[in-house]
């Protein structure tokens, strides 16, 4: 597999949310608007790339039995950094994301990539993998955010698309589940069609 394929695999073919079915909680929790989705996605991408770098460097020194706790500590350190940086420079977004920011620690995408990729590959390909997967996650969040903001609020990035309020249910909890459910079905169909 060349580095370009390594980079783009996270967008559709191995999309972390829609195909690998990881990281649903933040996806449904913060994708009520495009801006929130992008903020969360970029924060997770940063943590993913940084933890992939550190883990692929130290992978040979960590005994096998304690690798999962060690990975979690590395990830938690970067999450704390993101939290403090965001509280300082983007307090509004920090308040919007709320509890989902510290919960990046237990986001299975990040631990999943550490275990499945960074612990077996070189630093450079781990960076590419982290970037690709992180951007795939961000893209998914932005698309879900776009659908939910458009249908639920009648707006896109804050601009009104049509007058009126839209169907509030898409902003609320049930809309998140429904939109992602149908998105996965669409991706399933695309992948099936490509295989034929």
């Amino acid at each position: 597999m060349n580095q370009w394929q390594n980079f783009t695999k996270g967008f559709i073919r191995q999309n972390p949310v829609l195909v690998l079915l990881l990281g649903f909680c933040p996806t449904i929790g913060v994708s009520t608007s495009v801006v929130n989705g992008l903020g969360m996605g970029l924060a997770a991408t940063f943590v993913l790339v940084m933890s992939n770098i550190v883990i692929s460097i130290v992978k040979d020194f960590i005994p096998d039995q304690v690798r999962i706790p060690s990975y979690i500590v590395v990830i938690a350190a970067f999450v704390t950094m993101v939290e403090l940086l965001m509280a300082g420079f983007a307090p509004a977004l920090h308040a919007q994301l709320g509890i989902f920011l510290p919960l990046i620690v237990v986001n299975c995408i990040i631990l999943g990539r550490a275990e499945a990729f960074a612990s077996k590959n070189t630093v450079f390909s781990s960076i590419i993998d982290g970037l690709g997967m992180g951007l795939g996650f961000t893209l998914t969040l932005a698309v879900v955010g776009m659908i939910r903001e458009g249908l639920g609020n009648g707006s896109l990035l804050g601009f009104k698309l049509f007058p009126g309020d839209g169907a509030l249910v898409f902003i609320l909890a049930p809309g998140g589940f429904l939109v992602i459910g149908y998105l996965i079905a669409v991706v399933n169909m695309i992948i099936k069609r490509q295989e034929k």
Binding site: A173, P174, G175, L178, G181, I184, A185, V186, N188
Partner: peptide, 22 residues
């Protein structure tokens, strides 16, 4: 339907359940 099998139908069901809890 084939495309909805597995995760998609589970998420849609969860959405309806969430609607009920509302």
């Amino acid at each position: 339907p084939e495309a909805l099998r597995g995760a998609p139908i589970a998420l849609i069901t969860a959405g309806l359940l969430s609607l009920a809890f509302m």
